[in-house]
Amino acid sequence: MASRICSLKAPVAPRAVLWSAALLLVSGAAFAQAPVRVGVVPAEKKEVTQGADFVGRVDAVEKVEIRARVKGYLQAVKFTEGQAVDVGDPLYEIEPDLFQADVEQAQGALERAEASKTLAEIQLKRAEELLAKQAGTAVQRDQAAASDQQAGGEVLSAKANLATAKINLGYASITSPIKGRIGLTNVTAGNVVGPDSGVLATIVSEAPMYVTFPISQREFMRVTGDAKASLDNVGVTLGFSDGTTYAQQGKVSFVDVKVDRATDTIALRALFPNPDNVLKDGQLVRVRLASDAPKSMIVVPQSALLADKDGVYVFVVEDGKAVVRRVKTGAEAGNGVAVLDGLAGGEMVVVEGLTNIRPGAAVTASPVQSGS
């Protein structure tokens, strides 16, 4: 009986396996044929301004490091850190007593020298009169003349010492040489400062501001052309690290006279207005050079771009299937990118559902807003 049961059940299992396999093949084929829903936008021609982006740094037009020029006791700090200062505003006060004493001492030395000069002139005149009357000798006259000249030299030396003393007294009061904003003070009242004390504080001007940036020779030729006069037609804009754009536009004011041999770049400097003090000295910014002559170019959204080891490509929809198109990209245009080669215009470019498609896959395309 056992052997009969086995013989009856043996053919059942293969039919069940075949039936299950058939179901899997049918369902798999149906799944493979189901088109993938994707969002597309047309590759449109738009006016694109040619340009290039570079990394630049903001530099103050004027920058001064405040240093002590005489040694003495720092009596007072006369500014608030971070405040705006004008030319001549007091910054530091070094105790002036010793320098005032030096001035008075030099003044006294000058007066003594002038008195000696007066006496020497009188003696020279008397010696000349005696010699004329043959009551004196030529030697006495020459000695008197030499004494007069020596006294004149001592007067000049005394005047120079007095001038030096007055200058040093003036250095005791440190004032701002430029208009700008002053930073942190590195010393406080009560310290002894001098020429070896280093920088006491730094002042930078705030408007306008320079932005300096390196540009390769190739990019320089592409953006500005060979003639320097073409720089007048090149606009300069700035972008910040948070993605925002600076409201003011600048102009290239300087092109370096030499190329950096290590990097093969040319240093350019642009001048920007800074009415609201948005730009800060030392700030890192993105610099964009753009020609004033826009060109009609095909533009696609950045979200459509994909890349692999062979380069950049996009998917386009043709006859209900996803087709790969290799492209060469150019400048940014808003939220899009200019396509220099690979698209003729009018193609429906896939921007949504890219992770679900492969070359040749069946797709159902729906238009979406490009936002570019």
Rank of each mutant, 00 (worst) to 15 (best):
R269C: 06
A13Q: 09
L18M: 06
K166G: 02
V26Y: 06
V285Q: 10
A21H: 01
F79S: 06
F54C: 09
A115P: 02
L74G: 05
A22S: 06
S3D: 04
Q283E: 07
V324P: 08
A160T: 00
A30T: 10
A362E: 10
A145F: 09
T355W: 00
P208N: 12
D196T: 15
Q302A: 12
C6A: 03
L279S: 03
I178S: 02
V193M: 05
K45H: 06
T80W: 05
L98Q: 15
E347M: 13
Y313N: 12
A132G: 05
I167P: 00
V236N: 11
Q149N: 11
G180W: 08
L200H: 10
R4G: 02
T188Y: 00
S173A: 11
V77A: 09
A21E: 07
G180T: 04
V17H: 08
G88K: 09
T364K: 14
K321L: 05
G136R: 13
I182V: 15
S173M: 11
K280V: 03
A13Y: 11
P177D: 09
G360K: 12
Q134P: 01
D226C: 01
R286M: 06
G282F: 02
D86V: 01
D142K: 09
V70R: 10
Q302I: 08
Q143T: 12
A144Y: 03
A163Q: 14
Q100N: 05
P208A: 11
A132P: 00
L289I: 10
P214I: 07
P42V: 04
D242I: 03
V252I: 15
R181H: 10
G56Y: 07
P359Y: 06
E111P: 00
V12M: 14
A109G: 10
D232R: 04
Q83P: 00
V316K: 11
G194V: 02
G190Q: 08
A307C: 00
L119W: 00
A21P: 00
A113R: 04
K258Y: 12
L156D: 01
R57K: 14
